[in-house]
Design a protein around this nucleic acid. Sequence first.
RNA 1: UCUGGAGUAGCUCAAUGGUAGAGCAGCUGGCUGUUAACCAGCGGGUUGCAGGUUCAAGUCCUGCCUCCAGAGCCA
Length: 455
Amino acid sequence: MNRTLVKQALEDNLLAERIRIQGWIRTRRDAKSFSFLELNDGSCLKNLQVVVDAGLPDYRRLPEATTGAAVAVEGRLVESQGKGQSREVVADSLEIVGVADQTYPLQKKGHTQEYLRTIAHLRPRTNLFGSVFRVRSRLAQAVHRFFLGRDFVLIHSPIITANDCEGAGELFQVTTRGTPASPAGSDRNFFGQPTYLTVSGQLSAEAFACALSNVYTFGPTFRAENSNTSRHANEFWMIEPEMAFCDLAGNMDLAESFVKYLIQDIRTHCPQELELFQRFVDRELASRLDFVLGNPFKRLSYAEAVAILQRSGKNFQFPVEYGVNLQSEHERYLTEEHFRQPVTVHDYPRDSKPFYMRTNDDGRTVAAMDVLVPGIGELVGGSQREEREDVLRSQFERHGLDSQKYRWYLELRRYGTVPHSGFGLGFERLVMFVTGLANIRDVIPFARTPGSAEF
RNA sequence: UCUGGAGUAGCUCAAUGGUAGAGCAGCUGGCUGUUAACCAGCGGGUUGCAGGUUCAAGUCCUGCCUCCAGAGCCA
C-alpha cells in the first residue's frame, strides 16, 4: 500500500479512504480500551491523530509505541469525534518500525533552543525546527524561482579557489598536507598554487555575467574569522546575482524586489509555520514582514546617513564622522529607530571598501550599497563593479594587491568591458529575518562556528 | 579576540558558608474520546574541571573549559 503523507491526509480529498501513514510518534495517550497516537512525518507542522482500539491484534505492540518511535499505521481516514482536530485515522494495523527507548531526549514540553543545539541531529523532530527547515527549503526554491522568472542563469561557481576575494575575511586553506596520502613535510601544492575555500562567488559570477548578461550563484561560502556572535557562521550560504549593463540604481532595484519576493512567497505558502514563529518566537514578526512588503525601502547616501546620525542626538559608543565605518549601533539606529523600515545606504567612502567597487566621479566614494533591516542589520551588500581597466589597476596598487594574480579578472575589462553590478545576500540572515529566530545556529541544519563541528 | 552573564537530576530551575530540593520528563499502577490529558506511587546527583581558604564549600578565592548576550570582523 502506498504511503500517504500527513499533509495529504489533512488537506486532500481522502475522507473515508483507507490510507497508510508512516511517521514518528510525538505523544501517546492511553485509555482503557484504546489509545491515541499523535503522528508527525515532517510533511507539515500538524500531527495526525491515530486511534488504536484494544481489539486490534497489533494492540499488544502498543507499549513499544513510545514518544520518538517510528511507526507505520494503516486504517480509515475519518472525521474526528474529538475537538482538537478535524480528521483522524482509525487504525486497523500498527507496525513498530523503530523503537525509541526511555532515554529519548525530546519531551512533549518545550525545550530551550540552546539545549536543542546540543542534539542538533534530533531537533528537526520538534515543531519549531521542523518549521524552520521547511521554510528554509521553501526560501531556497523561491530564490531559484525569482531568478528563473527574470531569465537569470545559475552559475555553479567553484568552492575551491585560488583567488582571495580581498576584504571578505580570513580564508580556510585547502591542502592535502598532513593526511596519510600526503604526510606533513611533503611540501606539495596539489593545485600548483595555494588554494582556499571560497569566500565569495562574485569574481566567477562577473566573468559569466560578461557573457550571459544576468547570472547568479547560490552556494556555500567559508570564512575563517573567529567570530563569536549570533549572526556569523564559518560556513554559510550566499546568493550572489551579477548583471551586465546594470548600474547601482538597477542593483538596488533588484535587491529590493528580491527581498520582497522571498518574503511574499513565505507569506503565501508557509502560513502555519509563520503563525508558530509569531506565537513562540517573535510577536512582532507578522507586522514586520507586512511592513517590509508594503513600503519602499528607504534609500539614502552614506553622507546623508552620517548627517542623520550626527543630528540624532544619540550618544553612540562610536562617534560618527564622515569617513568612519557605520557600526552596528549606527545601522540599528537608522533601520530600527529613525526610519523603522529597511534602509538602503549607498555611495560609501572609497577608502573603507574593497578594490572591485566602482569609483564614483567625485573620486572619493564608490558605487556601493548595503540593505539594512531591523533586527538583523546588514542583509545585502553590493556594488557596481569597476569596469575601467586603468582605474582597476590603480585600485590594485592602492590596496597593495598583485595584479598578476588577477590577470583573468583584468582581461574581462580589456575585452568588451561593460558596466555591471551585483550583490551578495546571506541566506541564513534571510531565514532569520523571515522566521524571527535570533541565532544563526538555529537556521542552518548543522552550524559550523568556532570550536564547534560535532554534527 | 574583547566585555558582561551563566554552568546543580534527562530538561527547566531552587538552595544565609552548616543534612543538595521542586516542577516536568522517565518507570509502575489507576482513570478518562483523549489532545502540552489527569490522579497516586517509585527511582534519579563526582553541584563543568583542577587547585586553594575553612571545623565545614553548590555557595568564598585562583586558573582552565563550555554555553549565552553584546562588541569587533562581515553576509
